[in-house]
């Protein structure tokens, strides 16, 4: 009841300054729009850890010194870095997804949804960028520090885990935060394959209501807010991990 009143109040107030948010008072369109926000947030919350985990994995492969690990990852990183994400998404959905459908005997048996493909494509794309940043960070760890760790008796994986990654992560954090900000914006490519994130949902609404400007204002504010939070959290982590007397 209270909710309803607030919405009505908002609709009438904005109406007075010439903004048309009347659809909010309806059931169906308001629901679509709200779900759009939820889907975008869901994508962001899922994609951040996915991109980080794969980024770390890719970086480990790239710096492993083993060709059978580094070469395929290097090839993937180059392709994903140098081609448009939208094209990757379409390729994945129209080609790979169809291929999977044929394998399992028809689209009705294919468990992979458009939502999955957005997570896979955007997640791995950003992971490739993370991997480059982390790789550069790992390679910036002085050889003498690594040799000292080897001399003590750490194995390759332990050196990565206890020495190289902690140092590389600190060094690459600004780049990683930048990638995450891009990630948030990239979720909108889901639009192209009918994942009803916020831009897709908004198009559904404004084609009916002719209120592009009104919805745009909210979309822009929404993404700005998410990225403000991402940047803030990034800064907080950076401060938290800062090492006294060490120039990182």
């Amino acid at each position: 009841m209270q909710d309803m009143n607030l919405t009505d109040l908002f609709v009438s107030l904005t109406d007075k300054v010439g903004l048309n948010y009347q659809f909010l008072a309806t059931g169906y369109e308001a629901q679509i729009w709200r779900d759009g926000f939820v889907t975008t947030l869901y994508l962001v919350v899922l994609l951040i850890p996915v991109s980080l985990i794969f980024g770390l994995l890719f970086a480990a492969c790239l710096t492993s010194g083993r060709l059978w690990l580094s070469a395929p990852v290097r090839a993937f990183v180059e392709i994903t870095r140098n081609t448009p994400t939208l094209v990757q998404l379409m390729f994945s959905f129209l080609v790979l997804n169809t291929f999977v459908s044929n394998l399992v005997g028809g689209a009705q048996n294919n468990p992979l949804t458009p939502f999955f493909w957005v997570v896979a494509v955007v997640g791995l794309h950003i992971a490739a960028l993370h991997a480059e940043a982390i790789r550069a960070g790992i390679e910036a760890v002085p050889a003498s520090t690594v040799e000292a760790a080897r001399g003590i008796g750490f194995n390759q994986l332990q050196i990565l885990r206890y020495v190289e990654v902690p140092l590389a992560f600190r060094a690459s954090l600004p780049a990683i935060v930048n990638n995450l900000i891009n990630l948030v914006k990239l979720t909108t490519v889901g639009n192209a394959i009918a994942v009803s994130e916020i831009t897709y949902a908004s198009i559904m609404v404004w084609t009916q209501r002719d209120n592009v400007v009104e919805l745009m204002i909210v979309i822009l504010a929404f993404f700005s807010l998410i990225n403000l939070i991402v940047a803030r959290v990034g800064l907080w982590v950076e401060r938290k991990l800062a090492v006294p007397g060490y120039g990182l």
């Binding site: 520090t145 080897r150 001399g151 003590i152 020495v163 090492v243």
Partner: peptide, 30 residues
Amino acid sequence: RKRVGIVFQQYNLFPHLTVLDNIVLAPTRI
């Protein structure tokens, strides 16, 4: 290498760990 300690010219401590953690890392993890 566990049985033979080595100390280098450039110290090569782990810069992100405290003095205590630098010393404790190898015995606990290795």
